[in-house]
Structures are given as C-alpha cells and as structure tokens.
Design a protein around this nucleic acid. Structure first.
Lengths: 114, 114
DNA sequence: CAGACTAGTTTGCTTTACAAGTTAGCTGAG
DNA sequence: CTCAGCTAACTTGTAAAGCAAACTAGTCTG
C-alpha cells in the first residue's frame, strides 16, 4: 500500500519515461510494461500503455515495426524518431525544472510535525 | 521559452505544493499564486489555482476564513487541516518514489546523442 | 469619474490514466 | 482434442486536473 503511485502524479511523466526507455532499444508494448516495473513503476496497466504508444506514434515520436514472436502473436516494436528524441530532451529539461522547484519549496517550508 | 512547465507534468504535483505551502502559514488565493512564482512556478493561472483550492476545501484538506483586505475585496484565507497534513505527507512519500524511479531510469538508459 | 489593481468564481475544453472487455496466437496438461 | 494459461495488442468509456476566458466586485489614484 503506502507508496502506490498516485495516478495524477504520473500524468505526463509516463510519456517521457517511454521516450527514455526507447532511446536505447526498440521494445514492444508487452515488454515495456514489464521493463517499467523493474524501474519501480509496478503494474502500469496495459490499458494505459498501449493507447499511449498509439498516440505517440500518431504524433510521430515513435514508429513501429511488426515482428513475429516465438511465444505468441506478432509483436509491434516501437522505435524512437528524431522528433521523439527532441521531445525526450524537452521532457528531461522540464522534469529537472519541476523537481528543482518542488525541492526548493520543500526545503523552504518548515513542516509542522503532525 | 524552453522550460515552460508542461501542463501535464504539473498534474497532481500542484495540490501537493499547495499543501506544503499552507503548512507554514495561512494564505489566500491571490497571495498563493504570487508565492508560487517565487518558487519557480511562474504564472500558474488563477483559473487553475482557485478551482483547486475550492476542491481541496470540499475534500476537507483545507478550511477557509474570510478576512477583510486593506487593498481590495475580502480575502479568503486557507488553513491546512489534519487530513491535509496527512495528504501532504503522502504526497511527499509518493513524490520521492516517483523522482527516484525516474532518476534510475535516466541513469540506466544511455541516451543517444541526437 | 476612469483606469488599474486586488480578489474570487464559473463554464467549458483538452489531455491523460485506467478499468474492463475483446480478439487472437501459442503451449502444455489431461 | 480440448482447455487453461500465457503472450500480445486494441477499443470504449470515464474521471481527474490544468487552464483559458469571461464575469463580478471592491479599493485606490489621478
């Protein structure tokens, strides 16, 4: 329980994370959802990840290639595009700004104990 | 331009920031929007902040007191409640988890240079 | 009085996460 | 052969949150 990631906090972040993940290697949706959990994003539902990948493809941040799988239906691999790399770098810059702002806010504010 | 904070990245974060801000002192909406800009959250629109405060009051994370202002209409000061402090602590925990996850992801992934 | 500033509210739009359900291929147990 | 269980992807509909824009109103200065 405790630290389940609030659905709202994820917004916007997830797309950035996918761009970073796909920077190194092409992956298909099912593998992405497994990879994310190794980074602490436990159980991001497939109802979240697949539609997001489709949207990103429409925005031309990703392109896709179908390849047969040894264990089941055809896989759809996603590859990052030049526009995707640019979006990734913008995400990193914005993320850095945001975390700095929040860190400052948390430092400056003496929190009441209870 | 460059680092204007993406609207999506803010989601969920803003409520946590307000809880932290209001942990130390009661503030009214107009002052909050000015205080936020000193923490790097430049120009969060009033169309964002006022509705959020009302929602948080409905959720009983905040309560409000009206006090006359020397410079204009009556101010509505917001005070954090016990439930608000609990929500604040949960936000801090979740925020910490999220930033750790993203940091790990960014480290592990060697980013292509362009 | 007019304009600028302070202060708060409301309406409607857009994006995004997600639950839930659907389709479909493969493998191994019985 | 059949069925369960896993792999793999897509679709529909809903809710939350940020925000633009418009509106109401009080105060202060020129």
């Amino acid at each position: 329980m405790a630290n389940d990631l609030n659905t709202q906090l994820l917004k916007g972040t997830l797309q950035g994370c996918l761009l970073i993940l796909l920077s190194r290697q092409k992956l298909y949706g099912y593998a992405i959802s497994e990879a994310l959990s190794t980074f602490g994003f436990a159980d991001i539902p497939k109802g979240t990840i697949y539609p997001l990948l489709l949207t990103m493809e429409k925005k031309q941040l990703l392109k896709s290639e179908r390849q047969p799988s040894p264990d089941g239906p055809t896989r759809k691999y996603y590859v990052i595009t030049a526009a995707g790399k640019q979006a990734r770098d913008e995400f990193i810059a914005q993320w850095s700004t945001l975390t700095n702002n929040v860190a400052t806010l948390m430092q400056k504010e003496a929190l009441d104990e209870n």
